[in-house]
Design a protein around this nucleic acid. Structure first.
Lengths: 192, 192
DNA sequence: GTCTATAGGACGATAGAC
DNA sequence: GTCTATCGTCCTATAGAC
């Protein structure tokens, strides 16, 4: 792998786990086994430019991954359960925030950098769109599909937070079991 | 107000908005108009001790507030809508993370400090317990109440995240409208 | 109980050799 | 394209006067 890709790969994981401010350039350099001069050659505008490159890379990875899972299952309910299953598996093997989550970056940077905030917004939007497409294929109206997709995104993101504090994957497991209740028999009762 | 309370009050808000690492002691001191010696007199173990004091204070504030709201409304649905309404109001007037959220602290510190992680876990638990009590009063079984309360906590926390990225309160508004669908006609279908 | 001054280290970023 | 050396700033924390 070329140096630039290596930096992005390693930095992405670190940023997901520890947030943007929580990861120093030195830590990234050490894990990559490169030096400061090399990093600034590939990212002349420094750390924030690197972060945005990581978010773009993350967008590719996440959407490819979720599209693949959602293509493999008949309906949104089964696909969602499979997806959360995968997140839980990651969480239990790595013991930390990875996969489809980047809440640490959002909560730190949303107020500090519009460029980063927009990149994160775009990433959430891409994920939600995949849900919306599957839900409309299931027969939901566009409006209801959007509401449900948003609730899915929010509860998975929040569920990761709860898993982190509890050091268990229980919260996501319960969410995986509870979320389908929004789908069932509620095709027409969204937006009361 | 005595100095110690002043420090806690101001630091709590700053930590909620910018996270733990994102706020320097100097910024806290400046807003309090006090000096470093004074802060270290009240919190001899430094910044992390202050953070934990802030989380304890936050627990008081949040639970008092939510208990009050949940006491004012007949059922969980109405109480939840009123609560989210209040969060949205805060969000729109302050334009930043405050109120019942502390996701920035969780995502930054959960892996770094067990003391902080436990304080956050306790805080989430307190909030969930209020929901659980109201839900069982509504007639839900203990187990279903727990599942729904967890989904509520997660989706509100995740919804704040989406509001931050989009600079709108739309996500929380939609969540407020969509969440009640989990309650309706689903008393017995949780945990499929 | 509050102040000033300062220690000692980590940070992001730059300069210039090779 | 990668390296080392270094700058200037910020950080948490401490020491000691009042």
């Amino acid at each position: 792998m070329d140096t630039k890709s290596l930096i992005i790969t390693i930095a992405t994981t670190l940023f997901q786990q520890k947030g943007y401010i929580g990861v120093g350039l030195n830590e990234i350099l050490k894990e990559c086994n490169i030096s400061k001069g090399s990093l600034y050659h590939h990212f002349p505008n420094g750390k924030e430019e690197l972060l945005i490159a990581c978010l773009q890379s993350l967008k590719e990875t996440i959407t490819t991954d979720i599209v693949e899972i959602f293509g493999r299952y008949q309906n949104t309910k089964k696909a969602t359960n499979a997806m959360i299953e995968k997140i839980i598996h990651n969480l239990e093997t790595e013991g930390t925030l990875t996969g489809y989550t980047f809440s640490s970056i959002v909560s730190e940077m949303a107020l500090l950098s519009d460029a980063v905030r927009n990149a994160c917004a775009e990433l959430y939007q891409e994920i939600e769109n995949i849900y919306v497409n599957k839900l409309t294929a299931d027969g939901y109206s566009k409006e209801n599909a959007r509401s449900i997709a948003l609730l899915m995104t929010a509860s998975i993101e929040g569920g990761m937070m709860l898993c982190l504090t509890q050091k268990t994957s229980e919260p996501l497991k319960i969410i995986s079991k509870t979320i389908p209740n929004i789908f069932d028999d509620n095709v027409n009762v969204v937006n009361l």
